[in-house]
Simulated assay, not measured.
Amino acid sequence: MDMTAEHALDTDRCPQVAQHLAWIGDRWTLPVVVVLDAGAQRFNQLRRSVAGISQQMLTRTLRKLERDGMVRRTVYPTVPPQVEYALTPLGHSLAEQGLALGRWVFDHEGLIETSRTVFDARETSVE
């Protein structure tokens, strides 16, 4: 994404951007998207792959992702019906950004922890 000065100063769109960042940054969106980046999965397989997610939260997350064009839901006419979830090209682009953000965290985790320790020690000595 090209963040030109025009986009950076477009404060009218900040609420819209904040709204999208809020759902992208929720607890379950990126884990689901990153798991699906490896390939399509059925619901129960996906639930097992995303540690700690409940059936209800997975359902909500998948519906939200489908609504926003990130996930494609395919129902196969079997008995019982089989449902498969896969990322769309838009979803794959989100997964790519999520993985890049995760790499950034891994690369800088030590610096962040050091900064927190220094800050906490400084705050404790002021009290």
Rank of each mutant, 00 (worst) to 15 (best):
D37E: 13
Y76D: 12
G110V: 12
V118A: 09
E84N: 02
G69W: 04
V71T: 00
Q97V: 09
W104I: 07
E113F: 09
A8E: 14
A51P: 06
R67F: 04
G91P: 05
T29D: 01
S54W: 04
T74A: 07
S93D: 15
E66P: 00
Q16Y: 15
H20D: 12
S93E: 12
M57K: 09
D2I: 15
D120P: 04
V33D: 06
V17H: 03
R48A: 15
Q41R: 13
V71C: 00
T124P: 09
A51R: 10
A100W: 01
E113V: 10
E109I: 11
V35E: 14
W23L: 00
L90N: 03
W23G: 02
S125G: 05
A22G: 08
V75T: 08
P15I: 06
M3I: 13
R48W: 08
R116I: 15
H108W: 04
G25R: 02
P77W: 05
S54K: 06
S54H: 05
D10T: 06
A38M: 07
L90F: 09
A18G: 10
A8C: 07
P80C: 02
T78R: 06
A8G: 07
L30F: 03
Q16A: 15
A5W: 14
V32Q: 00
R60V: 07
T124G: 13
T11Y: 15
I53H: 00
W23I: 02
D12E: 12
V83A: 01
R73P: 01
C14W: 15
T11Q: 14
P80L: 02
G91H: 13
R72I: 12
G25Q: 03
P77E: 06
D12S: 11
M1K: 11
L87R: 04
Q82D: 06
V33F: 06
M57A: 12
L111D: 15
L111I: 09
A8M: 10
E113K: 12
M57V: 09
S115A: 10
R122S: 11
Q16L: 14
T29C: 05
I24S: 07
E109W: 11
V35H: 08
T114N: 10
M3G: 08
L101H: 08
Q41S: 05
R67S: 08
F119S: 11
R27E: 13
H7A: 10
L90W: 05
A22D: 09
L36M: 04
E66V: 02
S93T: 08
H92V: 08
F43A: 00
V34Y: 11
L46H: 05
T4Q: 01
V50D: 00
T11S: 12
D68Y: 10
Q41I: 03
R73I: 03
R13I: 14
V118M: 06
G39S: 05
L30P: 01
A8W: 11
E66K: 04
V35P: 01
S93A: 15
R60G: 13
R27C: 02
T124E: 15
E123I: 14
T4P: 02
R67W: 08
E96Q: 11
R73E: 07
P31H: 00
V32A: 00
H7I: 12
G102F: 11
L65A: 01
L21M: 03
I53W: 00
R27S: 04
